[in-house]
């Protein structure tokens, strides 16, 4: 019965599911830019991800995707200020497939990562896939632990200043990914996460 269900899934998703047979020591830092947080209305605009292995950020192993949306899909974003971007964009389905292949069975790291995952799950269900199965760590929660606070909101800048990491003027999602990755590396050593 289950086998039959599985067959309905796209190829890449099957591969993704099967990758969980093994455990992974790989972390993927994820940062998503979207039109908002409402999973039914809002869509993903850009995705950036980078790998962390053996306590090092591997720059080569990174992903950066910009997603184009057709007009019907996205109406909130149409206004006179919108400029035509020169960045090469991909269709959402293609981008999600690339991302899923990239993440594999790694642990996902993000800032308020649950929002990112919800958005991704919404996109995945459009493609007829299931929900993400990865473990995920949220640096805001980790930071709360370090500061001994409960459920306090911390912006990325705030955390970066706390660890005296230079904050670059955020231009793209990739900058966020970079900051998150460095913060994660720091938090990881402080909280002694293997």
């Amino acid at each position: 019965m289950l086998q039959w269900l599985n067959n309905k899934y796209p190829e890449f998703w099957k591969k993704y599911i099967s990758s969980f047979k093994e455990k992974s020591d790989r972390y993927v830092v994820l940062s998503i830019e979207s039109t908002g947080l409402n999973t039914s209305k809002d869509v993903i605009l850009a995705i950036s991800a980078v790998t962390i292995m053996n306590n090092r950020m591997i720059v080569k192993d990174a992903l950066e995707l910009y997603i184009s949306h057709t007009k019907s899909e996205i109406e909130i974003n149409q206004n006179e200020f919108l400029l035509v971007s020169k960045v090469a964009k991909k269709a959402e389905s293609e981008a999600i497939e690339l991302l899923i292949n990239f993440i594999g069975n790694a642990t996902i790291i993000g800032h308020r990562v649950y929002q990112d995952i919800e958005l991704l799950n919404a996109s995945l269900s459009k493609l007829g896939c299931g929900k993400l199965k990865n473990e995920a760590l949220d640096i805001e929660i980790m930071f709360n632990k370090v500061k001994d606070t409960i459920d306090k909101k911390y912006a990325l800048e705030e955390m970066s200043t706390y660890f005296s990491v230079p904050v670059n003027d955020r231009i793209s999602v990739a900058d966020d990914t970079f900051s998150i990755a460095i913060l994660f590396l720091k938090l990881k050593t402080i909280l002694k996460i293997k």
Binding site: N55, R56, M57, I58, V59, K60, A181, L185, K186, T189
Partner: peptide
């Protein structure tokens, strides 16, 4: 060169 480098953090006094 940058593409091939990796980034690491080093805690104080480590």
């Amino acid at each position: 060169i940058a593409t091939n480098c990796s980034i690491l953090t080093l805690q104080k006094s480590k």
